[in-house]
Amino acid sequence: MAISAAAVANRWTQRRRRAQELREAWPFSAEVLGFYGALLDAQEAAWSQARMDVPAPADVISYTRVRVLPAIFEATVRSGPSKLVQSLLERYEVADFESIAKAWLDGNELLPVERYIARAAVSPVLEALGTAAGALGSGPRGGRHCPSCGGRPQLSYFAASSEELLTPQRYLECERCATSWPYTRMTCAACGESRSMQLAVFTEEGVAQAGRGARVVRRQPAAADLGSEAAAPEPGSARFAHMRIDGCRSCSTYVLTVDLGGNGRAVPVVDELAALPLDLYAKEQGLRKITPNLMGF
């Protein structure tokens, strides 16, 4: 089914809008989002161009080097944090790009700066190619891997609900091509663990856990009668009311989950980038993210 260009273009507008909103609401992520906002312009341009050019899968890396990399590089140098800029300028050579990009697509271990540049440049092209990007990588598809390109899940989100008593599907979103696909609700997105006791969900206290579907009713003190609405803080009072950490004790990984039912303005990829305190908390718990995001968190 063809998705209209307008609908897809809207993604970039949404990302830009959300980055701006969160920059103001979440000052702790202002630096990250400021840079991300600047990068978005270069990425959107690359995406638009790639949609017209439609490079063959085999040519994606060389195409990216020639048509996309310069603008991404420039935006990074102009707006990126000094350590990143310095690393790029000192250690990075354009000639290395193709091997780095290939290593990234193959899922090999990379330096943070390498991972950054490969991802920042190649992903808009993959996103533009859509399912055609699937011909690129090898490896398994579906389940815990992107059904299109085989990438790992960057994040998880719960779709917004169209009905009050409906809990919608959980989706995973690809680190590489931004494809999202439905995934089993209570199962680790890294190793497939499904035993409840091995799966931990962390949320900011006072926040409704995935606040759609049934209304939140808290356990009452024994003296109080039941059934009255919760004395819990309003969902709005928590910063991360619509987010949670989905951790797995079996493989020690986590993924951030964004609940679109809890916040209709959220854009998963942006909120995930900006929720730095949740990442810090997860790391304290001994968990590592299934795959670091664009900004290295």
């Binding site: 000052p27 702790f28 992520s29 630096e31 990250v32 990126g80 944090p81 000094s82 350590k83 990143l84 800029v85 310095q86 690393s87 943070p112 700066v113 950054y116 609700r185 209570m186 409840s196 006791m197 799966l199 931990a200 969900v201 962390f202 949320t203 900011e204 206290e205 006072g206 856990q209 910063r239 991360f240 950490i245 730095l276 305190p277 949740l278 810090l280 908390y281 900004m295 290295g296």
Partner: peptide, 22 residues
């Protein structure tokens, strides 16, 4: 990548996080 984490750490300290089981 060189982002200043000071503010994020500060917010993390204020956060009350609870673990839940599904």
């Amino acid at each position: 990548l060189g982002f200043d984490m000071a503010h994020a750490y500060e917010v993390r300290q204020q956060l009350r996080i609870a673990g839940a089981t599904e």
